[in-house]
Nucleic acid binder design. Structure first.
Length: 932
RNA sequence: GCGCGGUUAGUUCAGUUGGUUAGAACGCUUCCUUGACAUGGAAGAGGUCAGAGGUUCGAGUCCUCUACCGCGCACCA
């Protein structure tokens, strides 16, 4: 006996099916098995590689759910589908984790030394690095784990070296002294994107600097001083000038004079530079070329000395005199105190300004002068802009295109060197001999033996490693085997879709496009889908540190992965604001699906007839509800197909939800019950077939969204079909369908050959003309109206369901009356009637109440007491509403401009509406009259 | 400062190129344990679509302005 248990056991099903899918190789592209259908085209999706230290948070869950839906959908459509999974090495984050671990043992990475430390990191990676990939499996992600990659593995490391050397050879990588964002805690340079700006309420400090040659020591200063304003007083230790705007009349006389820099007693010049905004602060700027990008530029223009006053860990260095060794913020306090003691501190204004924070550890970053490696971005950006102009990069939704292009147009060079150990060490070697001449850098794919310039063998590899994103930006092709000319690369590049969140457009999307164009001569993916950000109900971004996160694994444990996926996707039309209750929608829906299918299987228990024609339904022989549900399915499947084609996953999920729940469960199953449980054997048989047919195809539509429960149920359907080859199998799937385990098109399934798994069942595209049926749709519409009308009366007058009613429907139109007669039995069952009479006209008699529709009026007898006054009031209100509606329609239709300009079909509709309204009006009037 | 979103039922949100009396989920009210499902069924209440102006026969939908909320980028001595 094939049946479903009363309760769905999500944990059991999830574990069972995932391990089967994976072990049987179902996640691999069909072409791996040389069994792809002749027309199978590749569908390849790019996943943002999660951080190796990470755990699955809701953002990942949404992102991966979307991707999995797309991959599974395409796989069912017969595509040679591939999703390459993997993680990136997350240089700074991972190093931090391991350093923290060492700190517990009171050790630092320098205690261990580079080699030993890296061994520790690898050890950590082996032990903990697979957390997130395990969690992705729990979610149901159908990625090809046999192709799993890691940015630090051999192949990808080779790709990184290849990319670096190639760019260097093309003159697109250079090394320079420049102000970069420096994280004093991680002790490394960061790119501009890695320094997240946050608005902070800080101080704008006004300080006095004495002018040299007037009054001498500070104590005696009169008016011969200038006032500068700064937010970072501690950098004054490195000032090498003060600047004013050349047009600023207040200060023209100062230009060329000298200033005695307090505390360090250094004489610095007053310079004129147009950069200075006379409106801001005092109009005088202290210039610190080693600690501010603008000052750095100014310093270059005026040939100023660059004095770095800080150590890599954010303390004042020996150039800071008495402040040496102090932390930068401590030094700030002390310097302000000292200046105050000297009478040089004037005031502190409160000042809102954006301060960069390290995106890994949230420490305030320091603009810091140092020698770093950079990628020259403009030539790369130009190619990307050109590709966009050629229509090669398409964003969904479109508005992100502008964000992307703006960034490209204002692009700045990318600082790619990091002063950490965990990562790809830069493939550059410094010749110790040539170094003295400021030359002797050798950039090479393999370690060079000697300096090509002087022949010295004293070569030391650059200690820095590359930004993690320098490996991530190669992901779409490095994971396919580049720089080798691999088969996968040939077959799967460029990929189809990239799915990601908006915060990563600059970090990753734009850079991948640039790398793809630079190294492959082609964009890495054709379409880019940017989905919403997951936020907590409060509106804040979900994050563990804020304590407002919901752990997706907990939701999976509690409600199942399918419930989590469905809820997330259905909510993902834009930014997703989450609370725990929102997952109940998906949970309830999975339960509903389970129970509906359970019912269907129960009705098929005694289906044994093997003589039926399995080829095709004969429309004429089907009942109206059967014809209706088939037509409705095709309609909905077509809509779902349309939505999925343009990343409208939320809409597709919503359509499915309502089709399954409202149409299939609430109406079709209820209508099928009397047929399948009645005495008419032929009708019963036919209905069983339709129940099976539609339900099985619903499972296929649902599968990408909720893979586990659908597989669990579908396997039962398959069992059922194996016993009963006469189940009709008119399928609209792709006959060219390919799968790792064979070819399953319509023909194969029709012949009783079912795929091993729902994953390879043909996708129903919908809009199958064979099932189109406006007559049936109209008829069921009438039925629904009649049933709802009676239920409405029942509810309004509080008639218990056990109380079987006598109803009369008065209907002028013969066709409609005929339809109602056909459904006499169904209406009686669904509306719980004792009798139903359909007549042409009817006059209300005695204790009766009525419900009016344009097509017909429904009357039921009422025993018991009826609040006539209340009913009269209601009818009067309805009458008034209808009157207003009629007036509005009249006005509209009598407007000559409307008649002249509105399209014909709109005009027709409006006229029909008017007719309906008039009919309603008459009904209400007569009802009122009968009430007296 | 520049740019991008958003403002629709008590709450969270849909609403395709302007065209039924503006929808859903959750919540609420009433009734119902009828053999798939109470994680359910039936019925119902609830909205001058942020405000002002404009285009149009017709605006939640298009244009302008305003207000508020959110996001991104840049500058910030």
């Amino acid at each position: 006996m094939t049946h479903l248990d009363k309760q769905y056991d999500s944990k059991q099903a999830e574990a069972k099916w995932y391990s089967l899918w994976e072990s049987e190789g179902y996640f691999r592209p069909a072409s791996d098995f040389k069994k792809a259908g002749p027309k199978a085209s590749p569908y390849v999706i790019v996943i943002p590689p999660p951080n190796v230290t990470g755990i699955l948070h809701m953002g990942h869950a949404l992102n991966n759910s979307i991707q999995d839906i797309l991959v599974r959908w395409n796989r069912m459509k017969g595509a040679d589908a591939l999703w390459v999974p993997g993680v990136d090495h997350a240089g700074i984050a991972t190093q931090n984790v391991v350093e923290k671990k060492l700190a517990k043992e009171k050790k630092t990475r320098w205690d261990l030394g580079r080699e030993h430390f890296l061994k520790e990191v690898w050890k950590w990676k082996e032990e903990h690095g697979s957390t997130i990939t395990r969690q992705l499996r729990r979610l149901g992600a159908s990625c090809d784990w046999t192709r799993e990659r890691f940015t630090m593995d051999e192949g990808l490391s080779k790709a990184v070296r290849e990319a670096f050397v190639t760019l260097y050879e093309r003159g697109l990588i250079y090394r320079a002294n420049y102000i970069i964002n420096w994280c004093p805690r991680c002790q490394t340079a960061l790119s501009d994107e890695e320094a997240a700006h946050k608005d902070l309420q800080g101080g704008l400090y006004h300080l006095k600097y004495p002018v040299v040659g007037k009054n001498g020591p500070y104590e005696k200063m009169g008016e011969d001083h200038i006032v500068v304003a700064t937010t970072r007083p501690e950098t004054m230790l490195g000032d090498t000038a003060v600047a004013v705007n050349p047009e600023d009349a207040r200060y023209k006389h100062l230009i060329g004079k000298k200033i005695l820099l307090p505390l360090v007693d250094r004489e610095i010049p007053v310079i004129a530079d147009a950069f200075v905004d006379p409106e801001f602060g005092t109009g005088i700027v202290k210039v610190t070329p080693a600690h501010d990008p603008n000052d750095f530029a100014m310093g270059h223009r005026h040939g100023l000395e660059q004095i770095n006053v800080m150590t890599p860990d954010g303390k004042i260095n020996e150039r800071g005199g008495a402040y040496k060794g102090m932390d930068r913020f401590e030094a700030r306090k002390k310097i302000l105190q000292d200046l105050e003691a000297l009478g040089l501190f004037i005031k502190r204004d409160s000042h809102l300004h954006a301060v960069g924070h390290c995106y890994r550890c949230d420490t305030v970053v320091e603009p810091y002068l140092s020698k770093q490696w950079f990628v020259k971005m403009q030539p790369l950006a130009e190619k990307a802009i050109k590709a966009h102009e050629q229509g090669k990069t398409v964003f969904y939704p479109d508005r992100w295109t502008k964000v992307y292009l703006n960034w490209l147009h204002g692009i700045r060079d990318w600082c790619i060197s990091r002063q950490i150990w965990w990562g790809h060490q830069i493939p550059a070697w410094h010749c110790q001999k040539c170094k003295a001449e400021d030359a002797g850098i050798i950039v090479s794919r393999t370690a060079p033996e000697k300096c090509p310039r002087c022949g010295s063998r004293e070569l030391i590899q650059d200690p820095d490693v590359l930004d993690t994103w320098f490996s991530s930006w190669l992901w779409p092709f490095s994971t396919l085997g580049w720089p080798e000319n691999a088969e996968d690369l040939q077959k799967f590049y460029p990929t189809s879709d990239l799915v990601t969140a908006p915060e990563i457009i600059f970090f990753w999307v734009a850079r991948m496009i640039m790398a793809g164009l630079e190294f492959q001569g082609e964009v890495p993916f054709r379409r880019i889908y940017i989905h919403g950000t997951v936020r907590a109900a409060s509106g804040l971004k979900m994050s563990k540190s804020l304590g407002n996160s919901i752990d997706p694994l907990e939701v999976i444990d509690e409600m199942g992965a399918d419930a989590l996926r469905y809820s997330l996707v259905m909510l993902s039309a834009q930014d997703v604001y989450l609370s725990r209750e929102k997952f109940e929608m998906g949970r309830n829906f999975t339960t509903k699906v389970w129970n509906a299918c359970r019912f269907v299987l129960m009705q098929l228990e005694d289906f044994k007839d093997a003589s039926a024609d399995p080829e095709q339904f004969k429309k004429a022989a089907l009942s109206l509800p059967d014809r209706w549900v088939l037509a409705r399915f095709e309609e909905k499947a077509a809509e779902i197909e349309k939505h999925l084609g343009q990343f409208g996953l939320a809409q597709a999920a919503s359509e499915l939800y309502h089709f399954v729940w409202d149409d299939f469960c609430d109406w079709y199953i209820e209508l099928a019950k009397p047929m399948v449980q009645g005495q008419d054997a032929a009708l019963k048989h036919q209905t069983q077939q339709v129940l099976f047919f539609v339900c099985e195809r619903i499972l296929r539509l649902l599968h990408p969204f909720m893979p586990f429960i659908t597989e669990e149920i579908w396997q039962k359907f398959k069992e059922k079909a194996a016993d009963n080859l006469s189940f009709p199998r008119v399928l609209s799937g792709n006959p060219e369908h390919g799968s790792p385990i064979g070819t399953f098109g319509d023909d194969a399934v029709k012949k009783g050959l079912w795929p091993e798994t729902l994953m390879f069942a043909p996708w129903p595209h919908g809009a199958d003309k064979r099932f189109e049926d406006p007559d049936a749709q109209k008829a069921i519409g009438i039925l629904q109206k009649a049933v709802s009308g009676i239920r409405d009366l029942r509810s309004r007058f509080q008639i218990a369901p056990a109380n079987k009613l006598k109803a009369v429907i008065a209907c002028k139109e013969e066709v409609t009356r005929e339809i109602l007669r056909t459904f006499e039995r169904e209406v009686k069952v669904l509306a719980r009637l004792e009798t139903l009479d359909c007549v042409r006209e009817f006059r209300k008699q005695g204790a009766m109440v009525a419900n009016a529709f344009p097509e017909f009026d429904i009357f039921i007898s009422l025993e018991g007491v009826l609040d006539l006054a209340e009913e009269k009031k209601r009818l009067q209100k309805k009458l008034q509403e209808t009157e207003q509606w009629i007036a509005a329609l009249h006005k509209k239709l009598e407007n000559p401009s409307f008649a002249a300009r509105a399209p014909q079909e709109i005009l027709e509709k409006e006229k029909e509406k008017l007719e309906d309204a008039k009919k309603l009006f008459v009904s209400y009037q007569s009802q009122l009259a009968s009430l007296g």
